[in-house]
Amino acid sequence: MKVKIKSWHAIAQWRWDTGNADHDEGDGEGDVCGICRVPYEGCCPTCKVPGDDCPLIWGECSHVFHMHCLLKWIGTPASKQQCPMDRRTWVTAERKVPSQASKESEVSA
């Protein structure tokens, strides 16, 4: 017998590729943004739509945040341009960041 797939309507969830292993396989809440405590796949408090409209930002320090959350933090004088998690100067990791986001972060930084 030969089984041939004619067509397939499948369902999938998208995830941010944070570089971490998929340890939240299944129903886990997944990682949350260190600033707003909302899952990465959710959106920051000011956004309504997740995904490309509310992207993530990767730092050299390996910390990941919602881009909007981080930019807001960097925008406050108290931040001293530091990563809120480890107090190192925030450097956006170029490798993973979408081009648009990196431009914006450079402007604000």
Binding site: V3, I11, A12, W16, D17, L56
Partner: peptide
């Protein structure tokens, strides 16, 4: 998908959906 959206990946929910098969 990952090529199209480099920062995202897909997580399949394999038990959902429908498939049309041809059995020979």
């Amino acid at each position: 998908f990952t090529e199209f959206k480099p920062d995202k990946k897909l997580h399949w929910l394999p038990q959902l959906g429908t498939i049309t098969l041809e059995l020979e």
